[in-house]
Amino acid sequence: MKFLLKVVAVGAMLLTTFGASAAEFKPAVVFDMGGKFDKSFNQSVFAGVEKFRKETGIKYREFEVTNETQREQALRKMAQRGHSPIIGVGFAQAPAIKDIATEYPDLKFAIIDSVVDLPNVQSYIFKEQEGSYLVGVLAAMASKTGKVGYIGGMDIPMIRAFGCGYEQGARMANPNIEVIHNMTGSTPSAWNDPGRGSELSKGQFDRGVDVIYAAAGGTGVGVYQAAKDSGKLAIGVDSNQNHLHPGTMLTSMLKRVDVAAYNTFKSAMDGTWKAGIYNLGLKEDGVGWALDEHNRALITPAMEAKVEQIRADIIAGKIAVHDYRTDNKCPK
């Protein structure tokens, strides 16, 4: 009898959740070329939507694109089936989101890393330069040689903005610092080339660099490994990667795309969803630096005090971090 009750209860629960989600709530996400397991940007979104699924039990539909034209195809398919909200991951999906959101004005959309100015689209952009500025300060303070390195993935404006913020921060902490920049490659494989990441790191170490900040997706794994092997320091990106190599990872620059993705789903479910442009910086906790038990030993109280001071100054507007993307220039 107890068993039967249980079955009925579970069945009823399933029915209500299924009924509600079938009629009301069918979220979807379209990952970009890197794929949801890129150990970085897309994976962070994946973590956000997975968190939502685990909490609410509501399934979402997903797709990983493999070429330029599939973005629009996947988004249109999601829209045709009435999915809403639909998250487009990455700035490359902006033109497709714009088209599809215009075609389907009753559905909700979200774009991460770009702006689509429509009444049914949430645009999430991040002030990566501010977070990078902070880790730049930390890098300069941790460096004994006065040389710090930066390794980007593909040479695109956003990745230059990371590097530019980093350099500004490093220079602020130590005006005589030398910052060496490298990009991994010119094809999308640059986002997932740990071998090349490791080579570039060793090259930078040979030139005297002792802290490297990598903003290169899966390529970063090679950078961190090389830093560990050579006894140098590395800085992670996007999600908190401190746990990968405790003692080697100085810190991580956090870019909370997972929070953005989670909030999109959650707010749409609660009915609090609002279209608009969300420009997330230090103030909004959209970016930040990671301090946990894995890097506690590497961050001295002086470093922590200084970086927190600078963080407060940026939020208060006393320090202006230049965004490379506004004029395609980085101040020297």
Binding site: F91, A94, S114, I156, P157, R160, S186
Partner: peptide, 23 residues
């Protein structure tokens, strides 16, 4: 590889529509 390097250079530095993220 040379072709993709040329394209990245041109798209990021020369032909990009100013004021946008995407090359």
């Amino acid at each position: 590889f040379i072709a993709s390097a040329i394209m990245v250079y041109l798209m990021v530095n020369v032909l990009i529509n100013p004021g946008q993220q995407s090359p």
